[in-house]
Design a protein around this nucleic acid. Structure first.
Length: 490
RNA sequence: GGCGGCGUAGCCAAGUGGCUAAGGCAGAGGUCUGCAAAACCUUUAUUCCCGGGUUCGAGUCCCGGCGCCGCCUCCA
């Protein structure tokens, strides 16, 4: 049984076979660094993070490149607005992005190149296109001539005639075809520029990804990914210029993630309907690891190719679902059945889930099903725990859940970490109606819980209930054990 | 206008020809408990937007509607 991946190029799921057995070379289009990242960017990063992790679980050696576009019209514009240089702007937002990704638990890529560090490679690539007569100059700008590349538009399923019918293309009379795209733009006053055979200027957007991917992965590689809005024109242009230059197939598997929407509409800068990753963390009543995990669980709960509607309510629903896993972890930590009456049943339960989990992930990275299998495992382990699991069995169950979780970047915290992660009173918490509960230090809670245990021992239930209500006001919930002791959580 | 996608329970979301339509959240009843909480058990879609068709058999394939969304311009 092998991994099957939906390939945008062929519009079907295909058995994954890397060019070099045992190795995977993948490139994902990263961000243009001119502003804070929103949840849509987070989704893309997370999806490819999980794909990368799963490929590694499948024992592939993965070489994973995720780039930054650090020169571009929007960066230049922002730099003008702020009286800074384009380099300062891109540097700043690359750092902000790295911080968001770290908070989200997105693993660093093997190489995270900045476009401006690859100008010579871009120039070399463009020279090859010029030599092969795929490029022409107009007023110092260099264009790729799409008519010379008959397969242009194949990835997006478009052809030039149909594209022309769409009246949205602003026709530049100087170009031979409206869809010819810039490989090199001549410098305008005040703009960042580099020397080139065509005069000082800067690269077009598409050429950077071709140059960086080829530099790090070779002229043909396995996986190229990005958001589905990049299919056209960006990825079609990449294919055209790369294959025109090399005469080799550029990429074997094209993977595109669906959008995050707000009220069913694409989340985007231009519509202004976006949440930044930063504000999710800032407004969350929980500390970073817990918020990150809730966001991850939420984002992976929908298949990566489908649209996903974001709402704070849905986010906290994910948090509640995770609470149940961590509740199980708490009980597994306690492991109160030395005789382990149900131990013998555990291996079969684990084996079944192992199988189902991998089957789900092998089917085009079906994380919703994979998560559902973890939920089934959670329920199964709960049942066995009730029947009696030894300390060793509890540990192996916990370990197994952790190792499945690791693939998705979930379930890596301890119960204590999960549950002690409320942030003290702040401004209105995102999505939490009413006042945020004040936070009581653990020691205070332990003291009150001890007093309550004593009250219960003396059958002073009025007092016990009073203490419980008091704690509830601080967002602390009590669970009494059969042996008269109590555990708490918030 | 061209190309593509989606429409499954109160909500979210898998399933793309065949056992009883996964799983989560929310709800109801029960076991447990001093009462709770948590957990567990039971329960919540005779039915998958609508209408035809193919098939022994269809959310699943085909045709025609309706609704929503995306790409065709920068965009994860």
């Amino acid at each position: 049984m092998g991994l099957r991946i939906y390939n945008t190029l062929t519009r079907q799921k295909e058995l994954f076979e890397p060019l070099i057995p045992g190795q995977v070379r993948m490139y994902v289009c990263g961000i243009t660094a001119y502003d804070l990242s929103h949840i849509g960017h987070a989704r893309s990063a997370l999806v490819f993070d999980v794909i990368r992790r799963y490929l590694e679980v499948k024992r592939y050696e993965v070489r994973f490149i995720r780039n930054f576009t650090d020169v571009d019209d929007k960066i230049i514009k922002r730099a003008e607005q702020e009286g800074a240089s384009a380099g300062e702007i891109s540097e700043r937002f690359i750092a902000e992005y790295q911080k968001d990704m770290e908070n989200l638990g997105v693993l660093p890529a093997t190489v995270e190149p900045n476009a401006t560090e690859y100008i010579p490679q871009m120039i070399t690539l463009i020279e090859r296109l010029v030599a092969r007569d795929f490029a022409y100059v107009v007023d110092g700008d260099l264009y790729f001539e799409v008519r010379r590349f008959p397969r242009y538009g194949r990835l997006s399923g478009k052809n030039l005639e149909e594209l022309l019918a769409g009246a949205r293309v602003e026709v530049d009379e100087r170009k031979r075809d409206p869809h010819d795209f810039a490989l090199w733009k001549s410098a305008k006053p005040g703009e960042p520029s580099w020397e080139s055979p065509w005069g000082p200027g800067r690269p077009g957007w598409h050429i950077e990804c071709s140059a960086m991917s080829m530099e790090h992965l070779g002229e043909s590689f396995d996986i190229h990914g990005g958001g589905e809005d990049l299919i056209f024109p960006h990825h079609d242009c990449e294919i055209a210029q790369s294959e025109a230059a090399t005469e080799k197939p550029f990429v074997r598997y094209w993977i595109h993630n669906g959008f995050v929407t707000i009220n069913q509409e694409k989340m985007s800068k231009s519509l202004g309907n976006f949440f930044t990753v930063r504000e999710i963390f800032e407004k969350s009543p929980y500390k970073v690891p817990v918020t990150a995990e809730a966001l991850r669980y939420f984002l992976l709960g929908t298949h990566y190719r489908h649209p996903l509607d974001f709402s704070d309510e849905a986010l906290w629903e994910a948090k509640r679902a995770l609470d149940r896993f961590y509740g199980l972890f708490q009980r597994l930590d306690e492991a109160t059945a030395p005789q382990g009456q149900a131990d013998a049943l555990l291996p079969a339960v684990l084996e079944r889930v192992r199988e189902a989990f991998h089957q789900a992930m092998d089917d085009d990275f079906n994380t919703p099903v994979a998560i559902a299998e973890l939920q089934v495992l959670r329920a199964d382990v709960n049942k066995l725990l009730e029947a009696g699991l030894s300390k060793e069995a509890c540990e192996s169950a916990r370990e197994e859940l952790g190792s499945f979780g690791r693939v998705l970047g979930l379930l890596q915290l301890s119960f204590r970490e999960w549950v002690s992660q409320i942030i003290p009173v702040g401004s209105g918490a995102l999505g939490l109606t009413g006042a945020r509960p004040r936070v009581l230090p653990d020691a205070e809670i332990d003291k009150k819980v001890a007093r309550r245990i004593e009250a219960r021992r003396q059958k002073d239930f009025a007092k016990a209930d009073e203490i419980r209500a008091e704690l509830a006001a601080f967002g602390v919930t009590i669970e009494d054990r059969p042996d008269g002791t109590s555990r708490w959580k918030r």
